[in-house]
């Protein structure tokens, strides 16, 4: 793990953070168009850790204390992993009005809205990353993993298929709405060498 952390030197981290920042800008724009309101984007935070340290790393963010709805969108290709979208429960309640639903929101409507938003958010972000790194990725349809749970309850090391987690943590908030979404990108261990090659290529061109 130390070796992996050392390999992700400051320049590579900076380059990856900027790639994700640009990709999230595109994802934020897609959501802003869907919701018709300004989406405030946080600076992406980069963490590289063993999955056993995951809760410790994520618990530093106050946003993860409350109960959430968690969705997953796996991807594969030259990089393999999954995007995890986390929505605060109050934000889920706001989705209906944001997306122009009128009347009672059924379980089916809510599910459809969450899957749509996850697909736009994670899809736009990954497309942005792929186009900048000049790689191809394919996506599996998003699924709702769980509702009404906290990060600590959800991320149990034994339930995660990866040994290491490279997490890009991004927060989106909407003005005038109690809506917050955090997105985490997990990468498989075998994705690190090709990713570092691509980042080095970008850095070499400077």
């Amino acid at each position: 793990m130390t070796r992996l952390k050392d390999q992700f030197n400051e320049d590579r981290r900076d380059a990856l953070q900027e790639v994700v920042n640009i990709a999230m800008g595109q994802a934020g724009d897609s959501l802003a168009k869907l919701f018709g309101t300004f989406v405030e984007l946080s600076i992406p935070k980069f963490h590289l850790c063993d999955v056993t340290e995951l809760n410790q790393v994520l618990s530093k963010n106050d946003a993860y204390v409350e109960k959430m709805t968690i969705l997953r969108q796996p991807f594969s290709g030259q990089l393999r992993g999954e995007g995890i979208a986390l929505f605060n429960n109050s934000g889920v309640n706001e989705l209906a009005s944001l997306m122009g639903y009128e009347g009672e929101v059924t379980f089916g409507n809510e599910r459809e809205m969450l899957l749509d938003v996850c697909s736009i958010l994670v899809g736009a972000c990954l497309n942005g990353v792929a186009s900048q790194l000049e790689i191809s990725l394919s996506y599996t349809a998003p699924t709702i993993i769980t509702k009404d749970t906290t990060i600590e309850e959800f991320f149990k090391p034994e339930s995660i298929q990866w040994r290491y987690a490279m997490i890009m943590e991004i927060c989106l908030t909407l003005e005038q709405y109690d809506f917050t979404s955090n997105m985490l990108l997990f990468l498989s261990e075998d994705s690190f060498p090709p990713l570092m090659d691509k980042l080095d290529h970008m850095l070499d061109e400077l």
């Binding site: 920042n21 999230m24 800008g25 934020g28 724009d29 300004f38």
Partner: peptide, 9 residues
């Protein structure tokens, strides 16, 4: 020069 490409930004 920004990645925030929203019209409002």
């Amino acid at each position: 020069i920004s990645a925030d490409v929203q019209t409002e930004a």
